[in-house]
Each structure stands twice: as structure tokens, then as C-alpha cells.
């Protein structure tokens, strides 16, 4: 593992380059009559870990292909630190990529693939790479054809994390990893963030997104329907409140942000709350509340709302 150590563009210099890590303006990709990505406007600053979520076929991978210049936009533009994505020779010096479905040259061993990617890539910290090989428990001596899906993914992940490129573009990188490796992945993302690397992470794993991302963008049918921090996403959504009381039934209906009021038992009420809770709490206080339970929606519930599986098929917005 003594492969080429090359002058690595320090991640910190990324921040001082000509623009945000990812900048999409009106980015659109049409395939015949399908519009895979529809007028996408997105800005991911240097150093941020950005989660990119959306149901199957939403256009996540297509967006990434446009970012990498593997496909050309039908309209709009994508820039990586201010460099047009089509100028791959310059743009790719600033990024490393893990594709959704990693395919490797079957004859090469893992070590040989890592060597090749280090030699052709944007510069690799070989010491850190060797550490990652240990941490991800990869056996680098086996020919790639004998690797499982997860092991192929590990090779690409190790190669990407070992670069000092200021942007990592990862397309569902943990879909084949076991929970132990998933934990290593989260550690590696955290370390990348510490070094100032931005991470563009497409994922279906909400727990992972919640754990590692600063902000998330939600894509649906090619359109960006929300960009927010995980905490903000929560606050934008309904909280479920249950209360037991001994006094007169609280008057909740009609209060701002209160919906789906339900008397579950005599002296028990349940409702959903969006926005500031003051009015609802005041009303409850008047009813001599004996017990109060507030349940935050799980990220999953939030996303089900966005993905349109929550019943109405329409995304639920506050």
C-alpha cells in the first residue's frame, strides 16, 4: 500500500475556491418525455454535509451524473466550486465519487483498484487509505470479481474518503454495508467534515442522514420540494400531543396549528400541533392537565409525507 502519494489539494483550499461546493442553477435533464431532473436550484457550501433524499426514480442519481459531467443538462448548469461540471478535468480535481452500484475491473485485486484510483484520481492520502482499509475490514488481496456488493462498495468508499478532494459525491454509498460498516461510514463522514470536505450524500437511510447531515434536500419527481436542516424539518412538521386532564375538556379546535383533535378516552385528548405551542398549552393548562406526552415525528414520518405515501398522495406542507 505504498502507492503514489501526490501533492494533495488541501481540503481547506476548497473553501477559498471560486464558489460553493455544489451550485445548480435551473438544472434540468429530460429523457424523451420524462423529466428526470426539473429546474433544480441548489447550493451546497464548502464543508457542508448535505443529504439528498427522495423516492426511487426521483432523479437523485441523474442529478449526480449531471454534477459529475457524465451526462449533460438539457437546461441550466451545475458548478463545482465555481467550475462548470462539463469541464471534468478541472472539476474532478475537486471531487471524489462513489457510484450507486459499484462495478470494478474483475481481474484487479482490491489493492490494485485502489492503486489505480489513487494514481488517476485527485490525490490520495495513502496512509489514511491504509487505515481505512483496516477500518472497513477490506481484504485487498482478492480479485474484484470475488467481492460481494458491499465489498465493492467499500473499495470505492475507501478510495473516495482517502482523497483530500474538497467535495465527496456519494450515491447511496451504504446500501450494501452491514451495520458495523455503516458505523465506520458515519465516522469517516464525520472525519471528512472535520477536515473541511463537503459531502453530497444521496441516501434512502434516514437514520444515517439524520446522524451525519447538516442539511437535507428532498427531491420528488425531479423537483426539489424542500431544503432544510434536520432540526428545521422537524419543527416544520406536526408534533403529536396527548394529554390527560381532570378539569373541563380543553377547547383546542380552531387554535392556530392544532389539528386532528381526538378524545381518546374520558379525560384524554390527542391532537397534532404545528408551529408555536403557546396557545395550545394555555388551553391545556386551563383544563388541569395531569399528564402530557409530546411525540416528535420520526424522520420517517416526515419523509413519508414528502414522498406522498401518507395517504393523500400530495406532500403535506405546514
Amino acid at each position: 500500500m505504498d502507492a503514489t502519494t501526490r501533492t494533495t489539494p488541501g481540503a481547506t483550499t476548497g473553501a477559498t475556491r471560486g464558489g460553493p461546493a455544489v451550485h445548480a442553477v435551473g438544472l434540468t435533464k429530460r429523457y424523451g418525455s420524462t423529466t428526470a431532473v426539473d429546474d433544480l436550484h441548489l447550493r451546497v457550501p464548502a464543508g457542508e454535509v448535505f443529504g439528498f433524499l427522495g423516492p426511487n426514480g426521483a432523479g437523485k442519481s441523474t442529478t449526480i451524473r449531471l454534477l459529475l459531467g457524465l451526462a449533460r443538462p438539457s437546461a441550466g448548469s451545475a458548478r463545482v466550486f465555481g467550475v462548470d461540471a462539463a469541464d471534468v478535468e478541472r472539476a474532478h480535481r475537486l471531487l471524489a465519487h462513489v457510484p450507486a452500484d459499484v462495478a470494478l475491473w474483475p481481474h484487479l485485486t482490491g489493492a490494485e483498484v485502489l492503486h489505480l484510483l489513487a494514481a488517476t484520481g485527485p490525490g490520495t492520502d495513502t496512509a489514511y487509505r491504509d487505515e481505512l482499509v483496516e477500518r472497513f475490514a477490506l481484504d485487498p488481496g482478492k480479485p474484484a470479481r470475488t467481492y460481494s456488493t458491499g465489498n465493492r462498495q467499500k473499495v470505492a468508499l475507501i478510495a473516495a474518503f482517502a482523497t483530500r478532494a474538497p467535495l465527496l459525491v456519494l450515491d447511496e454509498p451504504t446500501s450494501g454495508l452491514d451495520p458495523l460498516m455503516e458505523r465506520e461510514f458515519r465516522r469517516a463522514v464525520a472525519q471528512a467534515r472535520q477536515r473541511g470536505q463537503a459531502v453530497f450524500l444521496s441516501s434512502h437511510q434516514l437514520a444515517e442522514v439524520e446522524a451525519v447531515c447538516d442539511r437535507v434536500g428532498i427531491l420528488r419527481a425531479g423537483r426539489l420540494v424542500e431544503v432544510a436542516s434536520v432540526a428545521d424539518l422537524r419543527s416544520l412538521h406536526r408534533t403529536e400531543v396527548s394529554a390527560s386532564y381532570t378539569g373541563a375538556a380543553p377547547r383546542l379546535s380552531g387554535l392556530a396549528g392544532v389539528e386532528a383533535v381526538e378524545t381518546t378516552a374520558p379525560g384524554r385528548v390527542r391532537f397534532t400541533l404545528t408551529g408555536p405551542p403557546g396557545a395550545a398549552l394555555a388551553s391545556l393548562a386551563a383544563a388541569d392537565v395531569t399528564a402530557l406526552a409530546v411525540r416528535e415525528p420520526s424522520l420517517e414520518e416526515i419523509f413519508l409525507d414528502y414522498y406522498g405515501e401518507g395517504g393523500s398522495g400530495e406532500q403535506v406542507r405546514p
Partner: peptide, 18 residues
Amino acid sequence: AAESDRRLVLLAAAPLTR
């Protein structure tokens, strides 16, 4: 074939022109 088998992606993502 390397392109359609997606083996090429890792090299295409390197700083190399087409």
C-alpha cells in the same frame, strides 16, 4: 462494455477528459 457495465464510472469521475 466497460461503459455499459459501469466499470468506467470510477475512471470517468477522475480528473481526466473524455
